[in-house]
Amino acid sequence: MAASGGVTLARRSRMEIARFLEGLGPVGPGVVRLTDRHPGLAVGETVDEHAVVSRYGAVARKP
């Protein structure tokens, strides 16, 4: 449970996240690592391309 007040977190794969978009119009680039969605970095910040992905995200439109 999340410490913020009883929210149960569930780990999901990229394919499981994509399932939530069925019937919607995905906006490119689709289901990606959040760091790939908005790759702009702060000054001095870097991305470890070999890091384990902990978050996926997507944007879609209702048809």
Rank of each mutant, 00 (worst) to 15 (best):
A58Q: 07
V32Y: 07
V59L: 06
M15E: 11
A51W: 07
I17W: 12
E22T: 10
P26Q: 04
D36Y: 06
E16P: 02
G40F: 10
V59K: 00
S54V: 09
L41P: 01
E16R: 10
R33N: 09
A18H: 01
E45V: 12
V47C: 04
L21P: 13
V53P: 14
A42H: 13
L24M: 14
V47E: 11
G25R: 00
V32H: 00
M15W: 05
E49W: 12
G30N: 00
G28K: 03
P39N: 08
Y56D: 04
R14K: 15
R55Q: 14
E45C: 08
A18G: 09
G23T: 07
G23R: 06
G28V: 09
G30T: 04
G57K: 04
G23S: 04
E49G: 11
D36H: 08
G44V: 03
Y56S: 03
A42M: 12
L24Q: 10
V52E: 11
T35S: 12
G40K: 10
R33T: 06
M15F: 06
M15Y: 09
R19H: 12
G23V: 09
A58K: 07
V32N: 01
M15P: 00
D36A: 05
V47Q: 06
V31W: 02
F20L: 14
G40V: 07
S54K: 05
I17H: 08
V31Q: 06
R14I: 15
A58H: 11
G57F: 03
R55I: 09
R19T: 13
R14V: 12
R19S: 15
A18C: 02
G28F: 04
G28Q: 05
V31D: 03
V27N: 02
G30P: 09
V32S: 07
P29T: 05
M15T: 10
R33M: 05
F20D: 15
P29Y: 03
A51T: 13
D48F: 14
A58N: 08
R33C: 08
L41V: 08
T46K: 07
V53N: 01
R55L: 10
G25A: 06
T46I: 06
G57V: 00
D48H: 13
R19L: 10
L41E: 08
E16W: 03
P26A: 03
A58W: 14
A51G: 15
V27A: 02
R37S: 08
V52N: 00
V27R: 00
L24Y: 15
A18L: 12
P26F: 09
V53G: 11
Y56F: 15
